[in-house]
Design a binder for these strands. Structure first.
Lengths: 209, 209
DNA sequence: AGAAGCTGGGACGCAACCGTTCCGTCTCGT
DNA sequence: ACGAGACGGAACGGTTGCGTCCCAGCTTCT
């Protein structure tokens, strides 16, 4: 990607190829060194540009990373409504596994999650660009299953979403990098079987025996 | 904790109160600024000591944080075997919620998780001090439930552990800071009901209907 | 054609941090 | 009683990073 050598350089307009090259370099750098450790100089060096090219586009490192989040978000998981809960969940789990098993994406997600706990600016960007769309998509998935009667009508959406999104992500992020095929299968299966259990609190007591 | 003003200063032995003060300051600093952003000078300033006091104890920032992980780990969740699966799971979820809802602990856990993806030294310390003991304790919890027949004998331990540990942690870390009482209850209930579903893959096909 | 303005580079000022080394003070172990 | 050595504090050299500025070359828009 960085191989695209801009033929001639210099023009009266910000060149998209340069912007893209910089963003790609920033993603790589962010994955390797983390947000706090990432240096603008390193990004410029990696992109084969001057630092000025960066500051012509963004006012600061933070602004650049905020933009960068959208780039990572675009690699996000599309949640297709295949019209079947089993298939939808399987497809989702597999897609998350594929996406997040890329070490770069994994590092960035982990890093920004941590950084977002401190930096409200990043937190908001991270939330609107990644968290909310993902959650909304999964919510659509669940709602359509409810309409088809594949899930109970009194489903606790929050809980179900946490089960679907959380367990998937946790497994991928904590089972080392390689995501086994059978792991995807087992995870999907558990989620599918457990989703109907996410109903309103009901009585306070737990499960007999 | 930093209020303990060492009466007289200077002696031929490293004073424990100073060590403790420094570690407390380091925990606070780590929570606020993250590993990469944490500066030894800031830790010393916060602890009311000189930087020399730090370097007399640890050879580097990294070494200090490795030690520090043990301190955080000591606040970890004790998994008591109450002899009942329902009670054990509830107690565990509540304990995790209480521990991790401390913003400092939350930040540190998130931060070190991300940092561990890059720094093998930290990764190992984090793993042996926090991850493994927690996982082992939960494993004990599950095994004893199996022995009592409260869980199937062919339980998929990995999956069950991910369900128990992962879902709990995910909910706590992602539902904002405040952990509702009913949230704890709902989460526990789902886990308890879903645990028996964590059995070997069996047939490849999923769930009917 | 010509102005406008972006290009990769390099240099800069400023600040922060790391890790070391002093200092004078003070207290513990022997 | 006395030496060893930790104490808080300060300074230092070296490195690194941010953000700015300037440069000469080149390309696009008017």
């Amino acid at each position: 990607m960085a191989e695209i050598r801009p033929r001639g350089r210099g023009a009266a307009v910000l060149r998209r190829t340069v912007t893209d090259t910089i963003l790609a370099a920033a993603v790589a750098e962010l994955a390797e060194t983390g947000y706090a450790g990432m240096s603008m100089g390193a990004v410029a060096r990696r992109a084969g540009t001057g630092k000025a090219a960066l500051y012509r586009r963004w006012s600061s490192k933070e602004a650049m990373v905020v933009d960068l989040i959208d780039v990572v978000a675009s690699r996000q998981v599309p949640v297709g409504g295949a019209g079947d809960l089993n298939g939808d969940v399987r497809a989702y789990v597999r897609a998350v596994a594929d996406t997040l098993s890329d070490p770069a994406v994994m590092c960035i997600v982990l890093d920004l999650t941590a950084e977002a706990a401190r930096n409200p600016e990043l937190a908001e960007a991270f939330d609107t660009a990644i968290r909310q769309p993902r959650r909304a998509a999964c919510e659509r998935l669940l709602r359509s299953a409810m309409e088809r009667g594949q899930l109970p009508a009194d489903l606790d959406l929050d809980l179900a979403l946490d089960l679907l999104v959380g367990l998937t992500q946790w497994r991928v992020l904590n089972t080392g990098r390689t995501v086994d095929d059978s792991c995807v299968e087992t995870t999907s299966k558990l989620i599918i079987q457990a989703l109907p259990l996410c109903v309103g609190v009901g009585d306070g007591r737990g499960v007999p025996g």
